[in-house]
Design a protein around this nucleic acid. Structure first.
Lengths: 148, 148
DNA sequence: TTAGATGCAAATAGTTTGCATTTGT
DNA sequence: ACAAATGCAAACTATTTGCATCTAA
């Protein structure tokens, strides 16, 4: 979505960061894969798009985007490599199967009210959130049944 | 809390895992620090409690506990080392300051209803969740003001 | 013009592996 | 008794660092 992308670029600009080739390429890589990518995935994708870009810059861009709540690292597959998720509009929600690591995304969350409440009570200024549920997906439940 | 601890031990037992010294020590380390610990913290604490326990077993225990929704790894300080949070009752909630990385925990979440709804609609069986808000804590907001 | 960002390659550090041995049930 | 889990140390791999150079604003 072009508009989403522009708003991310705006956020970079507004916070006083330069719109460099490395950053824009990392952003495009994330957007192309629309959501979940490990750092290794990002590294590969970026290198494919522009081999001149160095590893370090990719990691630096991921850190920066995280700080700006554009993305958020989370553990899904291995415990080594973080998976980065885009947080359009500042939020993201998914279910992770604790057995097969399948990720099921969902849209709905009724957290606006809670967010406002926390801002008021705790004097924080919130820009985003991630909500993860853990459990078993349909097929892993079935397998658990037949295993017993 | 003793009762919480017993229920974790029960969960281990019920899922057919042995109650080994390594696992129980890792669990105790996590409980002693009541919440947030990086893998390095856990490693140090466990070694202090019992130098015989090997690194590998600590990592294996952390992986197992994650699978059982007893703990959940999340990124807080560095992007390298995961921070593990205990999820008593299967859930945990906190706010992370994107500037200074301070963590503010809060109890309330009104997600029971959403959880039930997701189980019904998506045919999943959920055992826990993590909710993270991102933004600026009070002091980082103040600093942002005076910097401008 | 110049502070900020980059690319490189070496250094670091966290995590996993394979396997012989031990242990919980 | 025996499958499951452990401890060890080596191997692996992801990430960071320092610095000279470059570039967006």
């Amino acid at each position: 979505m072009l508009e989403e992308s522009n708003s991310r670029i705006e956020r970079l600009r507004n916070t006083g960061h330069k719109l460099t080739n490395a950053r824009l390429t990392v952003l495009r890589a994330l957007e192309n894969h629309d959501g979940h990518m490990t750092s290794t995935d990002v590294l590969e994708a970026v290198t494919r798009m522009d081999p001149e870009i160095g590893r370090a810059s990719v990691f630096r861009a991921l850190d920066l985007f995280t700080q700006l709540s554009i993305i958020r690292p989370t553990y899904i597959d291995s415990s080594v490599t973080p998976t980065y998720v885009l947080m359009p509009g500042g939020h993201h929600h998914h279910i992770i199967c604790t057995n097969c690591n399948r990720v099921i995304e969902f849209e709905e969350c009724k957290l606006d009210q809670l967010e406002a409440e926390l801002e008021r009570k705790l004097h924080v200024r919130l820009t985003g959130h991630l909500l993860e549920f853990y459990g078993l997906c349909e097929s892993c439940q079935d397998r658990a049944k037949s295993d017993s």
